[in-house]
Design a binder for these strands. Structure first.
Length: 110
DNA sequence: TGTTTGACCACGG
DNA sequence: GCCGTGGCCAAAC
């Protein structure tokens, strides 16, 4: 049965995040109506190992790379984002509000 | 089986 | 702008 745990839904959403854009735990949790952003963070922590999930595009509501410590190296997340053209400064996404992408805008970037 | 913790968020003081 | 509290659900102990 299509009995997806919410982490599967989180993966599905995160995979939709366009390159060069970022989203937040709260936005994903809100979109999935799971109730809490905490679950998203927990799910993502588990999701780093599986197939190519751009977990680096998920930051907290302040645009901070709160999950960088869960990556192979504390700077890995930042380097990935910078590689996509996202500016990072002091572990925060520059122009966060502009780059912010809400799952609501799936296939409707911008 | 109950408690604690977690890549969080919003609100109140 | 920092601290405490509630919420939300699952995993780890």
């Amino acid at each position: 049965m299509t009995e997806y745990g919410y982490h599967d839904r989180v993966y599905a959403i995160v995979r939709q995040i366009p390159k060069g854009r970022v989203s937040t735990y709260g936005a994903i949790a809100d979109y999935l109506a799971l109730g809490s952003a905490r679950m998203v963070g927990w799910a993502l922590h588990q999701s780093i190992l599986p197939d190519a999930i751009p977990a680096h595009r998920v930051v907290n509501r302040l645009g901070e790379l709160s999950g960088r410590n869960a990556f192979p190296s504390p700077t890995f997340m930042q380097e990935m984002l910078e590689n996509e053209g996202v500016e990072i400064q002091q572990d925060k996404v520059v122009h966060f509000e502009t780059l912010f992408w809400h799952p609501k805008n799936i296939e409707h970037p911008m």
